[in-house]
């Protein structure tokens, strides 16, 4: 039996969750006040995921970088691999929200998409 204490992040309540696992299987979740807390706790101890947000270089834009995100959440342990892949990306302006800048980033299956419109610089 193994016990982990987590802080639920679903809402500003921040419930203190206690998760008991046995051989990778979740035995119990306590401390949550709503079902989302239990779902979060189960996921967080078995396969935690995150949306990664960052920026990539833009050439010819009104600003030098455009903000990006992974279109879906990726395994937490892949964050560094995703960041390494992000740092190699450079795009040409204009860029629009939702533009796919890289497919299947770092083998996670998630696309890297722009989250900001960056217009081309008027010469």
């Amino acid at each position: 039996m193994e016990t982990r204490n987590l802080t639920c992040i679903n809402c500003p309540m921040g419930c203190q969750l206690t998760v008991v696992t046995d051989g990778g299987e979740v035995v119990s979740v306590t401390g949550n006040t709503c079902p989302r807390g239990e779902i979060y706790a189960r996921k967080e101890v078995t396969h935690p995921t995150r949306i990664v947000t960052s920026t990539v270089s833009v050439s010819g834009g009104v600003i030098p970088v455009v903000s990006v995100k992974t279109a879906s959440d990726i395994p937490k342990e892949s964050i560094q691999a995703v960041m390494d892949a992000v740092s190699g990306v450079c795009v040409n302006a204009p860029v629009s929200i939702g533009d796919v800048l890289l497919e299947n980033i770092a083998g996670t299956g998630a696309a890297l998409v722009a989250t900001k419109n960056v217009a081309a610089k008027q010469l």
Binding site: I51, S54, S67, K69, I97, T115, K116
Partner: peptide, 17 residues
């Protein structure tokens, strides 16, 4: 540029921009 905006308004997580 981080996400987590708009959960109340749009029922989804958006980045600031």
């Amino acid at each position: 540029i981080h996400n987590g905006f708009g959960l109340h308004t749009f029922k989804e997580e958006l980045t600031g921009p």
